[in-house]
């Protein structure tokens, strides 16, 4: 116990200074918020705005270096000259808009009601524990969305049913592959392969020309909409580097989807 204390004092020689403490706690909380925003699918401009908004309300100026997998933050108080500087590696990306909306709402509450760091951390903990939609609901609604795509492209009822089943199973496979900690691109490949294999049945049974829609639309639930749209909004914002990286990520995902389709086509000999 005593040893721990001395060790801590060696690392933070001035930890009897309350402001020094505050800047450390605030800095790591801000990095946490930035990392959460990044993995939940926020554009770089949004991350920077949110961090600046919160640090301004505490009286610090913040500068950030934002990249896809690492964030670097420097907060600085002009009056006292105290500063905090740190890096944080983000966890693997998974789009979660509840987190995005929760943090955006929180950032305004922080400004309006002058929250302290402890309140922020409690709110972050609450946001992290919020449940996702039940798995069956996700699978069926996304399946319906696939059927809707098929209908919009001009498919008939049989095509729609097969696309529903294909999307349902494809998303299931993707979720399972994610749980088994496969490479994220491999997960997309498996999903694209399974769903196009199932949705290719009408085209195999009937003629290819009339049932092509089912085969082509079955993989649309995998399209990297968030990376591609964020890529564009980053680019017109001037965050060219982030925009390029996000665009490349979206491109690789699209390429993986195409590979999955190709494998099914090879099996069916279309």
């Amino acid at each position: 116990m005593t040893k721990n204390l001395t060790l801590k004092e060696e690392i933070l020689p001035m930890n009897n200074n309350p402001e020094k403490d505050e800047i450390h706690v605030l800095g790591s909380t801000l990095l946490e918020i930035g990392a959460l925003l990044m993995v939940s699918g926020a554009s770089s401009g949004r991350i920077r705005n949110t961090i600046n908004r919160i640090s301004d309300s505490f009286g610090y100026s913040a500068d950030m270096l934002i990249s896809q997998r690492t964030l670097m933050l420097n907060i600085y108080n002009e009056d006292s000259g105290h500063f905090f500087n740190s890096l944080k590696r983000t966890s693997p990306h998974g789009v979660n808009f509840v987190m995005l909306s929760g943090i955006s709402r929180m950032s305004w509450l922080i400004v309006e009601q002058k929250w302290n760091v402890k309140q922020i951390n409690e709110e972050l903990k609450r946001l992290r524990s919020l449940p996702h939609y039940p798995r069956m609901i996700i699978l069926s609604v996304v399946g319906l969305a696939g059927a809707a795509f098929c209908r919009l492209a001009g498919g008939v009822a049989f095509d729609m049913v097969m696309v529903f089943i294909g999307t349902f199973c494809g998303l299931f496979v993707r979720q399972e592959a994610m749980k088994m900690k496969f490479n994220p691109y491999m997960c997309v490949y498996f999903a694209a392969f399974v769903s196009s294999l199932l949705a290719g049945i009408p085209a195999k049974l009937g003629s290819y020309d009339t049932h092509e829609h089912a085969f082509a639309t079955s993989v649309l639930f995998l399209i990297p909409g968030v990376p591609l749209i964020n890529s564009f909004s980053d680019m017109i914002d001037g965050n060219l580097q982030n925009g390029l990286i996000r665009g490349l990520n979206g491109f690789i995902i699209s390429f993986t989807i195409a590979l999955g389709l190709l494998t099914s086509m090879f099996i069916y000999q279309f």
């Binding site: 979660n96 808009f97 939609y133 609604v141 996304v142 399946g143 969305a145 809707a148 795509f149």
Partner: peptide
Amino acid sequence: WFGIAAVGFAVLFNVPVRT
């Protein structure tokens, strides 16, 4: 159908229920 497809993606992206 456009609306249903949009809602499907909204659920996939885990948007708040009110949206």
